[in-house]
């Protein structure tokens, strides 16, 4: 039944043809019958989706009108709706001179690096793990790789400091033993994009590896056997069978990452950068700027405004990317 991976392509074609013919049929039916047919086809699925949708509706959508706080000057006594509208004034601090440009540039640049590094490394690791056939050994690898995910960023920050401290830091110690001058890492912003990428990679490698590995484990082994019979070597198997089959997972992860490309993991920045002013030129991102500002100003309408801006632009980007995906691989579009 599943002879080769061409099957997937056929399935796509079949689906397109099917949906066209059924659309034609549908037009010919009377309304009530169509409704009955619809319920017949979708009823059970709707029921399955319903409990989850209800939870999501209650906890995410019911409070969502609160998003208007981004456009208001909230006063408790007046309530969310009674508070005064202020237009876009809560957004102003995000779009003034120099700083706006810098935080947006840093956010996009660093997140871009994170996405590329995470995707490539976790896919690569998953491929390697998939090649390990000793079950017990594989499990040990997986556990160990996953472990950094449990380590809080506070502790990651400690380790980074142990490595990069000026006085008594591990790396300066090594430099010293080669007769090199110690480097004052924490006052030179140029190094930090790399350090941030490595720290982030270390922390989340296991998480994404597990996702991709789960995708690979679900691949029918017969695909590989068929390929082997056709004379494919290991690399070709990975390239022509494994990667195409985990592509949907990669795409969904990329789409979600792109949606959140204006957001940053505040814990990462606060603990790794450790509040060092000198590092701001390359490491100040939207979230850290907003965080500092509202800590001082206590005006959380401004935080709401930033969140709205980040979400809005991210959403636009996702819609665009989703549209591109849909053009080339309709099955893998997010919506």
């Amino acid at each position: 039944m599943y002879d080769d991976s061409i099957y997937l392509m056929n399935a796509v074609k079949a689906r397109i043809v099917n949906s066209r013919t059924s659309a034609n049929k549908r037009a010919a039916q009377p309304r009530r019958q169509r409704l009955a047919a619809w319920i017949n086809r979708n009823g059970a699925l709707v029921l399955m989706a319903l409990p989850g949708m209800l939870v999501l509706f209650t906890f995410s959508y019911v409070p969502m009108p609160g998003i208007v706080l981004a456009f208001k000057d909230f006063k408790a006594a007046l309530g969310i709706w009674g508070s005064e509208w202020t237009g876009f004034s809560n957004f102003e601090y995000l779009f003034s001179t120099g700083i706006a440009l810098r935080i947006i540039r840093n956010t996009l640049f660093l997140n871009g690096l994170f996405i590329v590094a995470n995707t490539i490394c976790s896919l690569g690791t998953a491929v390697l793990l998939h090649e390990v056939h000793e079950r017990f050994v594989s499990r040990i690898y997986q556990s160990v790789l996953f472990f950094p995910y449990f380590v809080s960023w506070v502790i990651v920050g400690y380790f980074i400091f142990i490595l990069f401290g000026t006085e008594g830091g591990f790396i300066n110690g090594i430099l010293g033993s080669f007769g090199l001058e110690p480097v004052n890492w924490y006052s030179n912003p140029a190094y930090w994009p790399v350090i941030l990428v490595l720290a982030n990679l270390w922390h989340s490698l296991g998480y994404f590896t597990v996702i991709y590995l789960a995708g690979m484990l679900a691949i029918n082994p017969e695909y590989f056997e068929a390929a082997r019979i056709d004379g494919a070597n290991r690399l070709q198997e990975v390239w022509f069978i494994m990667l195409p089959l985990v592509r949907p997972l990669v795409i969904i992860n990329l789409l979600l990452a792109i949606g959140r490309i204006f957001f940053s993991n505040l814990d990462l920045y606060l603990n790794v950068i450790r509040n060092q002013g000198a590092l701001l030129p390359t490491t100040d991102v939207i979230d850290t700027y907003v965080f500092r500002s509202i800590t001082v100003l206590g005006n959380f309408n401004m935080a709401a405004a930033a969140g709205f801006f980040q979400a809005f632009v991210g959403f636009a980007l996702v819609v665009l990317c989703n549209w591109l995906v849909r053009r080339f691989e309709p099955d893998q579009a997010l919506f």
């Binding site: 689906r15 619809w38 086809r41 979708n42 699925l45 709707v46 989706a49 949708m53 999501l56 209650t58 906890f59 995410s60 959508y61 019911v62 409070p63 969502m64 009108p65 609160g66 998003i67 706080l69 909230f74 969310i80 979600l256 949606g259 959140r260 959380f300 935080a303 709401a304 969140g307 709205f308 980040q310 979400a311 991210g314 959403f315 996702v318 099955d331 997010l334 919506f335």
Partner: peptide
């Protein structure tokens, strides 16, 4: 793929990843 509401509901699920009301409205709820 044959579920008619698939796209609408996918959007419904995706939307809260980006947009959230913030702490206060959630707290009030």
């Amino acid at each position: 793929r044959d579920f008619s509401l698939r796209k609408v509901l996918a959007l419904f699920v995706f939307f809260p990843i980006l947009f959230n009301a913030g702490t206060l409205p959630f707290y009030i709820l």
